[in-house]
């Protein structure tokens, strides 16, 4: 069992990790073919993984209904919505439009999915305002710099700000292109070094906590 759960995954990680690190430097058709094939395996595995997700949803909500935990009625709504979408999907043969005409699935997509998702995203505008009101306070010198930069960028990024204070446009461009880029590059370099280090640790089997059970070397 330990072989299947520990040694074999570590061996696969090492072999594939080293092979595809080297692949980056080899422009030979065999190497290109190899990465294409592995990409296909990944696509197939990600397809199967969906079954895992579905099983989890069914299990979690079945338990909620069975135990009648508070709000269990919503689990029935979830089952009903899933079933309805699947039936409509099959009925419409997975098409949202046929010869320009909207199918039932297309109707579901246009008149439930699109407005619901749009609503979720639009909440962002309200949350940004409430978070800014709560957090943008000149508590320290650093917070004051953040505050001034935020106000300038908010002014410079919209026509009204550009109209009232035209110089905010140039300041915003400078802040985004120079200051923002420099800071993000610094973070990116740190992140990239961390990624390379973590990748090496995983390939070499030094970091194996992601397999479960911590490190047992």
């Amino acid at each position: 069992m330990i072989f299947l759960k520990r040694q074999l995954p570590l061996a696969v990680t090492f072999v594939m990790g080293v092979a595809f690190a080297i692949q980056y430097y080899i422009p030979h058709p065999v190497s290109e073919e190899a990465i294409t094939n592995v990409s296909k395996w990944m696509q197939i595995i990600s397809g199967f993984a969906l079954a895992l997700g579905l099983a989890s949803i069914f299990h979690v909500h079945a338990v909620k209904i069975k135990r009648q935990v508070p709000g269990w009625g919503y689990s029935i709504v979830l089952y009903a919505a899933m079933l309805a979408t699947i039936i409509v999907g099959f009925w419409s043969k997975g098409e949202t439009r046929v010869n320009g005409a909207q199918t039932a699935l297309g109707w579901l997509y246009d008149y439930s999915m699109v407005p619901l998702q749009g609503t979720m995203f639009s909440i962002l505008a309200f949350f940004i305002a409430s978070a800014a009101y709560r957090a943008f306070r000149a508590r320290s010198r650093e917070a004051s710099v953040l505050l001034v930069a935020a106000v300038l960028v908010m002014m410079g990024r919209v026509p009204l700000g550009q109209f009232l204070l035209p110089w905010t446009w140039d300041v915003t461009q400078w802040l985004l292109n120079v200051v923002n880029s420099a800071v993000r590059r610094a973070i990116l370099i740190g992140v990239s070094m961390g990624q390379v280090a973590l990748s090496l640790k995983i390939i070499l089997g030094i970091e194996r906590a992601y397999l479960g059970g911590g490190r047992d070397q």
Binding site: I128, A132, F136, V151, M155, V158, L160, G161
Partner: peptide, 24 residues
């Protein structure tokens, strides 16, 4: 939509300004 965005940015700027006044 840019007019709406202009107005929203200004409301946020005013809110941030007021919040700082109250804070001080």
């Amino acid at each position: 939509g840019m007019d709406a965005q202009s107005a929203t940015h200004f409301v946020i700027i005013v809110l941030v300004f007021l919040c700082n006044v109250f804070y001080f």
